[in-house]
Amino acid sequence: MKVKLFVTLLAFAWSAPSLALEKSLINQAISDVSSGLYTGIDSILIYENSKLVSEYYFNNFDKEQLHQTRSTFKSIFGLLAAIAIDKKILSPDEHIQPLISRYLITDNTDFRKTQIRVKDLLNMTSGLDCSEMPGTGPYHDEVVDNGPEPLKYSLSIAMATEPGKEWKYCNANSFLLGVTISAALNRAQQPNIKDFTRTNLFNPLGISEYRIYRSPDGFLYAQGNARFKPRDLAKFGLLVLNRGQWQGKQIISNQHIDFILDGVVETHWSWTDLINKHSASKAKYAYQWHQTIFELGKMSVPVSHTWGNGGQFIFVVPSLDIVIVFTGSNYGNIDKQKQAFEIMHKYLLPAASAFNK
Rank of each mutant, 00 (worst) to 15 (best):
L104D: 02
R187L: 11
I181P: 08
Y210A: 02
H95C: 09
I293K: 14
A11V: 09
Y331F: 13
K152F: 08
M299H: 11
V264G: 02
G310R: 14
I96H: 12
K87Y: 11
Q65G: 02
A160E: 11
I252M: 03
D120C: 14
S304Y: 04
S24E: 14
T327E: 14
P98V: 09
G40M: 06
S300A: 12
K229Q: 15
T39H: 07
S270V: 00
T161L: 04
W269L: 14
G40Q: 08
I83T: 06
R211G: 01
I44N: 04
T161N: 15
G244H: 11
Q250I: 07
E149V: 07
L261N: 11
P302A: 04
S34Q: 14
H256R: 07
M1W: 05
G164K: 05
S126Q: 09
L128G: 03
W246Q: 10
T125F: 13
A20K: 13
V53I: 15
N254Q: 15
W269F: 15
N309L: 05
K119L: 04
R112V: 00
A11G: 04
N146V: 01
G224M: 07
A158I: 03
D62F: 00
N225C: 02
G308K: 03
W307Q: 08
Y347N: 08
I100E: 03
Q189S: 15
L261C: 10
G248H: 09
D145W: 15
M159L: 10
F73K: 01
R214N: 12
L79C: 13
T69H: 05
V118C: 05
K51N: 06
G311L: 09
M133T: 14
S54V: 00
L21C: 06
F77T: 02
V265Q: 14
L201Q: 00
A183C: 06
V179A: 13
